[in-house]
Computed example of a mutant assay.
Amino acid sequence: MNFKDFLQKFQDIERSLQKEKRGIVNVTFNAKRATPIKTDLEVIENAIIDYVVHYVKGWHNTKRDKGRGAEHIKLHLEKGSEGEITIEELLNLGNSLREYLKVFKEPFDDGRGGKVYEWENDEGVRFRIATDKIKGEGLIPPLSPSDEQIISFYSDRNLSQRMEFKNPKVKAYYENTQSQTSILNQAHKRKQK
């Protein structure tokens, strides 16, 4: 691949990612009802979509404190809220999903038909995205039987306890990462003495 082809491919990916972020903003704050979140950069590059996670407008019932989609997730954008997330974290939802899938290959099945994506950032804040199958509305079937919609996205900020990972692979991964970091830090301290 020559430089010109590489640059064009990079620009195409960048445009797709900007469109994805615009879609998230329009679903969260405007009248857009849904936007696709591509789960693989190669999928974006080739425009072949077999599996898509949709970010939908959704709803929130304040009396029952239940909901799904952007209307439910917006509550976590409030400063100091339980499960607080930043606008940057919301806009990078697609990147977070793709990074998760790069490491863990598939979401964790919660045993009730939903899927869970979990990770920890560099500051030790833990995040969870919960998805569920898109159910056909009346006569309109879902776009694909494998399509999912995001029902919730939150962090462990301002929670009474640190989030426990549901996925044993994710838990083991971060425990291993922390122990390796601890060993490296101890070795670095000994070297400095």
Rank of each mutant, 00 (worst) to 15 (best):
Q18C: 04
R22F: 09
F165I: 03
A31L: 10
V53N: 04
E118P: 01
E118K: 12
R157H: 00
N176F: 14
R98Q: 12
R126M: 06
R64M: 12
K166Y: 07
H60I: 02
I37K: 06
D109H: 15
R128S: 02
K9G: 11
H188R: 15
K105L: 06
K115R: 13
Q178Y: 10
P141H: 08
V53D: 05
Y51L: 10
N158D: 09
G67L: 03
D122M: 12
N46S: 10
L7K: 15
L91I: 03
N61Q: 04
K133H: 00
T181S: 13
P145S: 13
E137H: 14
G114M: 03
Q11T: 07
M1S: 15
G83E: 02
N185W: 08
L41R: 14
E175Y: 06
E148F: 08
F165C: 07
E71L: 11
Q18G: 09
M1D: 11
P36V: 03
P142G: 06
V43K: 10
T131K: 11
R15V: 01
T86W: 03
E123D: 15
S155Y: 07
K171F: 10
K102D: 12
G111Q: 09
N2E: 12
Q11I: 07
D109N: 14
K66P: 01
Y117H: 11
L17N: 13
K4W: 09
K32N: 03
Y55R: 07
K57G: 03
N92V: 00
N121P: 00
V170I: 13
A172E: 09
K79Q: 06
R128T: 03
Q180R: 14
D50Q: 14
V56C: 07
W59P: 01
P107R: 11
E120V: 05
E45I: 08
L91S: 05
Q11R: 14
R126Q: 06
T62M: 03
K66H: 08
V43R: 09
E82P: 01
H72T: 00
R15G: 05
V43A: 14
I73K: 05
G113Q: 11
K4I: 12
E148T: 03
K74W: 05
D5S: 14
Y55A: 08
N92C: 08
E42G: 06
G138D: 02
V125E: 11
E120C: 08
F3T: 04
F10V: 02
Q192K: 13
V25P: 00
N95A: 11
G23R: 04
E118M: 05
D12S: 12
I150V: 15
K166G: 02
N121M: 07
R68T: 04
P141I: 06
G136A: 15
R128V: 07
T177P: 00
E71S: 06
